[in-house]
Design a protein around this nucleic acid. Structure first.
Length: 271
DNA sequence: CCCAAGACCTGGCGGC
DNA sequence: TGCCGCCAGGTCTTGG
C-alpha cells in the first residue's frame, strides 16, 4: 500500500478533479472494507459539493459542508477518476458518482482500506486524535525523536513505524531512511544518540520528499489517479534488495524480520 | 504504560 | 497444471 508519498500523490492528482464538484450519488458494491461502510453515507453526501481534499497521516479527508469522508487505502487501495460508464472490475468496491458521467472509484483487493463518515472535526476522530506529527512538518526533528524515544527498548524501525510517534512512515521508507542514516533497524530506540536521531529525522524527510517528487513507489498495485506508476522504486537502496550488493560497500544486504515485517539492511554501513 | 503477536483479506510466487 | 505455504506498501486489537 501506499505510504505517505503515494497517498499525497493521490491527493494531488485528485484535487483538481474533485474539489468544488458535486457528488450525485454513491454506489457501494462491497461494503465490507476494514470496517463496514455506513449505510447512511450515500444519503449524507448525495447532492453535496466537495469543499476540500486534505490529508492527515495516510488518511484522505474529503470535506463537505456538514461532515467529512475519511478514506484510507490500506495495503492495496487506489483511487481513480473514471467515466461512470466504464464497467467496474473485480475489487472496484465503491464509486462516488460525479457530474459529467465521471466517478471516483475505489479499487482495493485486500479490503484493508476504509471509508468512514464523521460530522465532527476529523482531527478529533478516534482514529486521528492520537497521531504523531507529520514527518515533513518542522516539529518532527532530531530533538523530537530524542525526547520521545528515551526509555524505549523497541527497535528503532518499529518506533519509526509507530503512528503515535510519527505518521506516514511505512515499511519501505523506514528501511530506506535507516539505511541513509547508517542506523541498524534493530537498534534500541532509546539508546540512540541525539546526533544520530538528528540524522535519522533528516533522512526520513529527504526520502519522503524525494519519493513524493517522483510520484511515490510502485511495487505492483499502486497507481496515481491518472494511472501512472511511481518511480521511486528505481532508487530504493535496500527495500526488496536482500542478498544484492549494498550500493555503497558492495557487500550483500541482510534480510531480517523485525516486528513481523521484513527489514533489509547493510551490516557494514549500518550500526 | 510498553511491547509483541494476532487479526483482517486477496493474490502472486516459488517449490514440489 | 495443481496444491501449499509464504509473502505483500497497514494498523487496530488483544494479551502478557
Amino acid at each position: 500500500m501506499p505510504e505517505l508519498p503515494e497517498v499525497e500523490t493521490t491527493r494531488r492528482g485528485l484535487l483538481p478533479l474533485l474539489v468544488g464538484r458535486k457528488v450525485q450519488d454513491m454506489t457501494i458494491r462491497q461494503r465490507n472494507l476494514r470496517w463496514p461502510i455506513s449505510r447512511s453515507l450515500p444519503a449524507a453526501i448525495r447532492g453535496q459539493s466537495v469543499q476540500s481534499l486534505d490529508r492527515r497521516a495516510k488518511y484522505l479527508l474529503m470535506r463537505f459542508s456538514h461532515g467529512s469522508v475519511l478514506l484510507h487505502l490500506g495495503m492495496s487501495g487506489s483511487l481513480r477518476i473514471l467515466p461512470q460508464t466504464e464497467a467496474p472490475k473485480k475489487h472496484d468496491h465503491v464509486d462516488f458518482v460525479l457530474a459529467d458521467k465521471q466517478c471516483l472509484r475505489l479499487h482495493d483487493p485486500r479490503r484493508f482500506g476504509a471509508i468512514l463518515w464523521t460530522t465532527r472535526d476529523p482531527q478529533s476522530h478516534p482514529l486521528l486524535k492520537d497521531l504523531g506529527p507529520e514527518p515533513l512538518d518542522e516539529e518532527f526533528d532530531g530533538d523530537y525523536l530524542f525526547r520521545r524515544s528515551r526509555g524505549r527498548k523497541v527497535a528503532i524501525k518499529n518506533f519509526l513505524m509507530n503512528s503515535q510517534v510519527v505518521v506516514g512512515v511505512g515499511n519501505i521508507y523506514a528501511n530506506e531512511a535507516l539505511f541513509q542514516a547508517g542506523i541498524r533497524p534493530t537498534h534500541a530506540a532509546g539508546r540512540l544518540s541525539k546526533l544520530r536521531l538528528h540524522s535519522l529525522a533528516t533522512k526520513v524527510k529527504n526520502v519522503l520528499q524525494h519519493a513524493l517528487e517522483v510520484g511515490g513507489t510502485t511495487l505492483r498495485d499502486y497507481r496515481s489517479p491518472n494511472g501512472h506508476p511511481g518511480y521511486f522504486r528505481l532508487e530504493l537502496a535496500v527495500y526488496g534488495r536482500a542478498g544484492e550488493p549494498c550500493k555503497v560497500c558492495r557487500k550483500p544486504l541482510i534480510e531480517k524480520r523485525i516486528g513481523q515485517r521484513s527489514s533489509v539492511y547493510c551490516r557494514t554501513c549500518q550500526s
